[in-house]
């Protein structure tokens, strides 16, 4: 198999891609995807590998200008293939296992209301008890976070939805979603600090 230096890869793939370089890259991606996906998917491995390789090649050619040469070109190309494959797989897995239809009633309301979003009610007498801590966190979530931050935290941390899926649902992207949740975590951490308590102390009450 042909081996190229970084500059050669970029030159050969720019404009009208060189057939041999393109085929070499394709073979590399197919081999890597087949090897890594074999333990991650149960069926249609060859078809998935083919689809992901094709999509990754298009993205790689499209993004050639952004390759800064800080890694091997092949590693850079492989990271794009990994992102393509895992993003699609996560969406597919969630779609296959999602029980949204079962957990949502005909009028669109959730049957399994996230309990953490319910009204925290009156403050328990012993505020250092588990109940007291739950109440404190519920109150902070209700009062400190925006509706969007609450939706994001519940979907990712409680329902375990993939970030890519939640990002699509919230009409945003994964990067912005991460930052939304980061802002929410920072806000809650500061509020805890103002209350004179650390996350570690809250955790300690649960043993």
């Amino acid at each position: 198999m042909a081996q190229y230096m970084n500059d050669e890869w970029v030159d050969l793939l720019s404009g009208e891609p060189d057939d041999e370089a393109l085929e070499t890259l394709r073979a590399l991606l197919v081999r890597g995807l087949r090897y890594t996906l074999s333990s991650r998917v149960n069926s249609n491995l060859d078809a998935l590998v083919e689809d992901f390789t094709q999509e990754a090649l298009l993205k790689i050619l499209d993004k050639l200008d952004s390759f800064r040469g800080e890694s091997q070109f092949t590693t850079w190309a492989q990271k794009i293939a990994v992102r393509v494959a895992l993003t699609e797989l996560r969406r597919k897995r969630w779609k296959d296992t999602s029980l949204d239809a079962l957990t949502t009633s005909a009028d669109g309301t959730s049957i399994l209301e996230p309990a953490i979003l319910s009204d925290p009610g009156p403050t328990p007498e012993d505020q250092t008890s588990q109940q007291g801590m739950i109440h404190l966190v519920q109150k902070m979530i209700a009062e400190e976070l925006t509706e969007r931050q609450r939706q994001a935290i519940v979907a990712v941390m409680l329902q375990g939805k993939p970030m890519d899926v939640v990002a699509t649902e919230l009409n945003t992207n994964r990067n912005a979603l991460y930052k939304l949740i980061h802002d929410a975590r920072l806000r809650l951490k500061r509020k805890l600090s103002e209350a004179g308590i650390t996350a570690d102390e809250v955790l300690a009450t649960f043993g």
Binding site: I116, I134, L158, L186, D200, V202, L203
Partner: peptide, 16 residues
Amino acid sequence: QKVELVKGLMGALELT
């Protein structure tokens, strides 16, 4: 459910 979310959230806050 509340306990699990509080624990998960606090774990994340510790690392924030």
